[in-house]
C-alpha cells in the first residue's frame, strides 16, 4: 500500500464533503416560524439540495418558544444543528433571538432579528409601556459585539405599515434571502405558494421590503448596521377621584392588578402608590359610582419605574 492511496480515501468520505448550510429559525408560537422554515426547506429542495428540517411545535402552542432547524446541502446527516454551528439565525422575537445566540457560528454567523418583544407573563415585572425590563435587557449595540454580522429589523412595524402585521415573518425571510444565493424569482414563487391566497400581494411586498432593507444596510460595510428597538411612548397615569361620589365599596382597591389603591381615613379611595400605577383603567371601568377617571398625561422622555 502506498501512502497516496490512503490519502485518496478521505477525498470521497462524507466528512470531507462541504458541510450543509444551517439555518435556525426561532420565535414565539403564532408568529409564523414554521411557515418561514417551510418556505426555506421547500426552496432548497427545489434547488436540488438534500434538506432536513426539524421543529418543535404543538407543545409550545401560541405564546411559547418555537424553533425550527433547517439544514441543506449535498448530503445532510443529522437533522439538528449543534451549538455554534448555525450559519444564519433568524429570530422573530428579540428575547428568543438572544436565547439562541450560542447556536450561531462565532466567526461567520449572521444574526437577523425582529426588535419586537413579546414578554411572557412570568417575566413581566412592570406592565408600564416603555418600562425598563430585567428580561433580555441587551441593547442592539451589545448584541452586535457578540455576533459577526447582525441585523435588528423592526419587521413588525414594517409589516404593519404594509397593512398586515402578520407578514413580519416574511420581512425577515426577505432579509434572510440576502444570505443565500437563490434567485429572487424562485424565492417569490415559493413565498406565494405558501402564504394564504388572499395575502400573496402583501407578503411579496413584505419580502421585497426585507430584502432591500438588508441590502441597503449591507452597503456601508464599515460599521455593523443595527437599529435600536423603538421606545414605547411614555406617559404618566393620573387618577382623578371624586370623593363625593365614592361609596367605599372597595372594588377598585381589591381588583387593582398592581394593588396601588387604598381607602383613606375617610373611607374614600385614593392612589397610595402612584409609582406602581400603569394606567390600565380597570378601576375606572369597575367603579359603579363613576368616581374614578384615569388620565394618561403624555410625558416626554420620562422613564417607567422598575420594581
Amino acid at each position: 500500500m502506498s501512502e497516496t492511496s490512503i490519502d485518496a480515501a478521505p477525498a470521497v468520505a462524507p466528512s470531507a464533503a462541504k458541510p450543509p448550510f444551517n439555518v435556525l429559525i426561532v420565535g414565539v408560537g403564532g408568529q409564523g416560524v414554521i411557515m418561514v422554515s417551510k418556505v426555506l426547506a421547500a426552496l432548497a429542495q427545489w434547488r436540488g439540495f438534500e434538506v432536513k428540517q426539524s421543529e418543535v411545535h404543538g407543545m409550545a402552542k401560541r405564546g411559547g418558544s418555537v424553533f425550527s432547524h433547517v439544514r441543506f446541502g449535498k448530503r445532510v446527516w443529522s437533522p439538528t444543528i449543534a451549538k455554534g454551528e448555525a450559519d444564519v439565525l433568524v429570530a422573530l422575537e428579540w428575547a428568543e433571538g438572544l436565547r439562541w445566540l450560542p447556536f450561531l457560528k462565532p466567526d461567520t454567523g449572521i444574526f437577523i432579528c425582529d426588535t419586537k418583544r413579546i414578554v411572557p407573563p412570568f417575566a413581566c415585572l412592570n406592565r408600564t409601556p416603555g418600562a425598563p425590563m430585567r428580561y433580555s435587557r441587551e441593547t442592539a449595540d451589545e448584541v452586535a459585539s457578540y455576533v459577526a454580522e447582525g441585523y435588528a429589523i423592526d419587521a413588525t412595524t414594517m409589516a404593519e405599515e404594509l397593512g398586515n402585521e402578520r407578514a413580519a415573518n416574511v420581512v425577515l425571510l426577505g432579509a434572510l434571502s440576502n444570505a443565500l444565493d437563490f434567485p429572487v424569482a424562485d424565492w417569490e414563487t415559493t413565498v406565494a405558494d405558501f402564504v394564504p391566497k388572499k395575502t400573496v400581494a402583501v407578503n411579496l411586498e413584505a419580502f421585497r421590503l426585507g430584502r432591500t432593507w438588508v441590502a441597503e444596510a449591507r452597503a456601508p460595510a464599515a460599521d455593523v448596521p443595527l437599529v435600536h428597538a423603538p421606545v414605547a411612548a411614555s406617559y404618566a397615569p393620573r387618577l382623578e377621584i371624586n370623593a363625593d361620589w365614592c361609596k367605599s365599596c372597595d372594588i377598585c382597591v381589591k381588583l387593582c392588578p398592581e394593588r396601588c389603591l387604598k381607602l383613606n381615613a375617610e373611607r374614600v379611595a385614593e392612589l397610595a402608590a402612584p409609582e406602581k400605577c400603569t394606567g390600565c383603567r380597570l378601576c375606572e371601568w369597575l367603579c359603579p359610582d363613576f368616581a374614578i377617571r384615569v388620565h394618561l398625561d403624555p410625558q416626554a422622555g420620562a422613564e417607567g419605574t422598575a420594581r
Partner: peptide, 11 residues
C-alpha cells in the same frame, strides 16, 4: 351620586 348601594353592579 346615584342612589344605588355601594358595590352594586348596575353602575
Amino acid at each position: 351620586p346615584h342612589f344605588l348601594c355601594p358595590g352594586c353592579g348596575h353602575g
